[in-house]
């Protein structure tokens, strides 16, 4: 049995996560959620002085916005779409027959107008664009959503449905780069307060296919993505628990988001993987939250 299965089995055995029969889809225990809530309080505290505008979207987004985002160009293998039954009574009868026989009943399902949110910030950009030109100080947003990525795995840190909390900065290149640099430092302080071993490293997104290798190397060469890594399942391949991303004017161009002077806005974001940070805490401080170091409990507001 490898280390990944082992950690998952330990978490399931301890009743911190609940098996659903699907790899990467788990129920969370109250203790687990207490820790998630503590992390969220810390995220708010670390960003409080910036007075971000809080926005919450459900974990589904407008399919038209998803299509326009270009997500299918880069990550077709990760996307999840919501399909529904739209047939008549005859089609319903056929569906029930197929279900009863254990046959494929999903072939008649039609795409709805909703796609499962792939990243918490995706619904934000069209909204910001619709509001018109930014103020000279740009914009700062606080987002959190359950997200979906189709990558079944027995690594508990690679869930298919998980919560991503983000601060997103929209403005001039200087404003968004300063934001990202600031958050790399805050991110280190954040996990230091949680007494977790970590390192920040250059990274790339998991772009699809061979062409994706070119996109990945291009992203690295330009230093667009950094991750804060913590050993969760593996010391050799630590897990990205926070990420710091500079999108250049990608979303500004795509959605027509304009700075106060009419030039295209640049964007950057810091993302917190809430389940991943939580798992890192259980991995390093043990499964008994009451026995965690006092400093960690205080930081999380659990004391």
């Amino acid at each position: 049995m490898d280390a990944q299965v082992s950690l998952l089995d330990q978490l399931l055995g301890a009743g911190l996560l609940f098996d659903t029969g699907v790899d990467g889809l788990y129920g969370r225990a109250g203790v687990f959620e207490d820790v998630v809530a503590g992390i969220e309080r810390m995220v708010i505290a670390f960003g409080r002085e910036d007075q971000a505008e809080v926005l919450r979207f459900p974990p589904g987004m407008n399919r038209a916005h998803f299509e326009a985002s270009g997500y299918m160009k880069s990550f077709p293998h990760l996307a999840g779409t919501v399909h529904c039954f739209c047939g008549d009574e005859a089609a319903h009868g056929q569906l029930l027959g197929e279900l009863a026989k254990g046959e494929d009943w999903t072939h008649g399902q039609k795409a709805s107008d909703i796609v499962i949110t792939p990243a918490a910030c995706y619904p934000l950009y069209p909204l910001v664009a619709k509001r018109g030109r930014l103020k000279p100080q740009g914009g700062l947003f606080d987002l959190c959503s359950y997200c979906f990525r189709h990558e079944p795995s027995t690594d508990p840190a690679r869930m298919q449905m998980f919560r991503m909390r983000e601060y997103v900065r929209v403005g001039s290149p200087e404003q968004v780069m300063a934001f990202r640099q600031d958050w790399i430092e805050r991110g280190k302080a954040f996990v230091t307060a949680l007494e977790l071993p970590h390192e920040v490293d250059l990274a790339n997104d998991p772009f699809f296919g061979r062409g994706g290798r070119l996109a990945s190397s291009s992203q690295r060469e330009q230093g667009l993505k950094f991750e804060l890594l913590i050993p969760v399942n593996s010391v050799v391949k630590p897990t990205a628990c926070l990420s710091f991303n500079y999108h250049q004017d990608h979303f500004g161009e795509l959605w027509g988001i304009e700075q106060h002077d009419g030039t295209k806005a640049h964007t950057a974001c810091v993302g917190f993987g809430l389940e991943r940070i939580t798992l890192a805490l259980f991995r390093h401080h043990g499964f008994d939250v009451k026995a965690w170091p006092a400093g960690v409990r205080t930081a999380l507001g659990l004391a």
């Binding site: 880069s74 062409g211 070119l214 996109a215 291009s218």
Partner: peptide, 18 residues
Amino acid sequence: SFASVQLMLALEDYFGVE
């Protein structure tokens, strides 16, 4: 970046190279 990927794939397809 995406256009360069498209270009690469088109060149590979046309010239039969990788």
